[in-house]
Design a protein around this nucleic acid. Structure first.
Length: 574
RNA sequence: UGGGAAAUCGUCCAACGGUAGGACUACGGACUCUGACUCCGUCAAUCCAGGUUCGAAUCCUGGUUUCCCAGCCA
């Protein structure tokens, strides 16, 4: 396979991190090894921004014949729980990343970290501080003014050791004491103004260590040391940690560790019309704006999966957006393009009528007919399926216009249209109710147009349909962007991101008609509903335990993405 | 106003002192039993001002704009 031509799996565009690693390998730094890690905090589900990081870290490990560790950064038991741990593992694996036996927790290192902390105390580089949180904030100074030393800064090593041991023993209440690194209260980098490295949290049950600890290390202290303990070579994180790097390096330079990983920062993903912040995603759920972490409108991996996105599409997406240090906002069209490309190639075609309008073929006999239709127009390996045709059909309301706009090529009074995979029909009569609404169409078919072009005229339009008597009734959920504003959490209009919520982000259609073959679908199965888009059977549609069959009334299809629609574009411009 | 970063087509990413290139989008066309797919074509950018150089997106100087940082969160 000549790979560089293939956009999907082949070409690996270089990026600045790969350049750094290439350089490191040339210099035989780390003995040429590459070990990365993905360090999620289990305080929520993973979102598409994490996918960028996961694919970067695991991709690097794969390409450079190294390793990537999955390490849960679980130092804050207040916010974390085991449900999130399991959800994260599921999502990482679903993306196709394999951590093998390299599953770790920062909490695995709590003992070692405690030893490191004592080492720091003994080197006079850490002290127990009794300042309250508010007092500490005052002592910290501001962005433009230096802070001042804590009155507890010069406690003796012995006193600090004793106090720290008693903190561990649970003698002190939450908030009364912390352990701080002793660096420089006048540093222009606020992170270096004697940062807290241990705080007391009594009585919380940690999902990994239970009640063993009542003091927990902070991120800055934990992360660099965990990296070192695992022999990480390249510790890749997002830009907001850039000015934590001096701290990262300070701990590793001050303490005796067997290696000193290099922290490299890249810019996080921003996607138009959504938010990617765990705090905000949590808020969306708790306030009931969405149904949960896996709501198909959520930018979470679980939401995207339920929506019908594939790992391949997300991988391609991350390949297309690249990795740099510059701030970026990716258009939703990029993500949609990726899933369309994947599903176009890999999903079988079906017909489904979302907004039904009844059509009676007046000159068609009472007996049914059965057609065979290709499951994929460009790929014969998808095979064929049978589709019943009968006297009464449904077509989509949008495929009929009494007063057609210019260039409209679907059904109009007196006009002809091709029924996909079937006959050409002519609309002879429009039946309306007393309010003037179109309720039914009476049409006639040309028996000589099955599998061939009609004689002496050309029919441009092709529309989809289902046989009324054979159709499966289903619910179809149409999703749209969750937010109307492209950057809802940074809209510069004084409004909150919640103010930009799109009230039409979910439209539920309850009386849709599907061709019968769709009755066999399983949750997660994906189809192209021709001329409509890509749809996936919702995960809630589990088969009945008794019969093993899914009740037909229970079909719920999620629209993953629409087809590209140049006609809609023309109409919009009108 | 302290510190740390970033600025290249509408968007994202390349170009590593030597022809500013690709992808997405947009626009135009071909094809079509999906207004899809595919194919062909077009438009479109180096933040600004100086300097170095035969030659600057790239190096230097000075500006401008944007982002991040004052958790006992990560």
């Amino acid at each position: 396979m000549s790979d560089t031509e293939h956009s999907e799996s082949g070409s690996r565009p270089s990026n600045f991190i790969r350049n750094i690693i290439d350089e490191d390998i040339r210099n035989n730094k780390n003995g040429g090894r590459v070990v990365t890690r993905f360090p999620p905090e289990p305080n929520g589900y993973l979102h598409i921004g994490h996918a960028k990081s996961i694919l970067l870290n695991f991709g690097l490990a794969e390409d450079y014949n190294g390793h990537c560790n999955l390490r849960f950064d679980d130092t804050n038991p207040h916010k974390e729980n085991i449900e999130f741990v399991e959800a994260i593992k599921k999502d990482v694996a679903w993306l196709g990343c394999d951590w093998g036996d390299r599953l770790f927790f920062s909490s695995d290192y709590f003992d070692a970290l405690y030893e490191f902390a004592m080492q720091l105390i003994k080197k006079k580089k850490a002290y127990v501080c009794d300042l309250s949180a508010e007092a500490m904030r005052e002592y910290r100074g501001t962005l433009t003014e230096a802070g001042k030393d804590s009155p507890f800064r010069n406690r003796t090593v012995e006193e600090n050791l004793d106090l720290f041991a008693r903190m561990k023993a649970g003698e002190f209440e939450d908030g009364t004491k912390v352990l701080r690194a002793k660096i420089d209260m006048a540093s222009p980098n606020i992170n270096l103004r004697d940062p807290t490295i241990y705080r007391i949290r009594r009585g919380v049950i940690h999902h990994q260590t239970g009640a063993e600890w009542c003091l927990y290390p902070m991120y800055d202290f934990t992360h660099c040391l965990s990296d070192a303990l695992e022999g990480i070579t390249h510790s890749i994180c997002t830009l907001e940690f850039e000015d934590h790097r001096p701290l990262y390096d300070w701990f590793l330079d001050t303490l005796e560790t067997s290696c000193h990983p290099q922290q490299i920062e890249f810019s996080r993903l921003n996607l138009e019309h959504t938010v990617t912040s765990k705090r905000k995603l949590t808020e969306l759920i708790e306030s009931g704006h969405v149904a949960g972490w896996d709501d198909p409108r959520m930018p979470t991996i679980a939401g995207l999966r339920r929506r019908g996105y594939t790992p391949a599409a997300l991988r391609e997406f991350c390949r297309r957006i690249g990795v740099t240090k510059s701030d970026n906002v990716i258009e939703m069209g990029v993500l949609e393009g990726c899933i369309r490309d994947d599903l176009n190639k890999h999903s079988p075609r079906r017909m489904a009528v979302l907004n039904p309008l009844k059509v009676v073929i007046t000159n068609f006999p009472e007996d049914d007919e059965v057609f065979e239709a290709a499951n994929h127009p460009q790929d014969e390996t998808f095979g064929v399926r049978k589709i019943p045709f009968s006297r009464e059909l449904y077509i989509d309301r949008a495929d009929f216009e009494e007063v057609p706009p210019k260039k409209y090529k679907r059904l109009i009074p007196g006009g002809e249209v091709r029924l996909r995979n079937a006959y050409v029909i002519r609309c002879d009569e429009v039946v309306k109710d007393s309010d003037g609404n179109v309720v039914e169409l009476h049409c006639s078919y040309d028996a000589d147009t099955r599998g061939k072009k009609p004689e002496g005229r050309k029919v441009k339009g092709v529309i989809h349909w289902v046989s009324a008597r054979h159709a499966i009734e289903a619910e179809v959920r149409l999703y749209d962007r969750l937010f109307n504003h492209p950057t809802p959490d940074n809209s510069k209009d004084g409004l909150s991101y919640l103010d930009h919520l799109n009230p039409g982000s979910l439209r539920t259609l309850t009386r849709c008609y599907l061709e019968p073959s769709l009755g066999d679908a399983s949750p997660g199965d994906q189809f192209q509903f021709e001329r409509e888009g890509y749809f996936s059977l919702d995960s809630s549609c589990q088969p009945d335990h008794q019969t093993g069959e899914r009740a037909r009334s229970k079909s719920i299809f999620n629209r993953t993405v629409t087809l590209r629609d140049t006609w809609a574009k023309i109409e919009k411009k009108r």
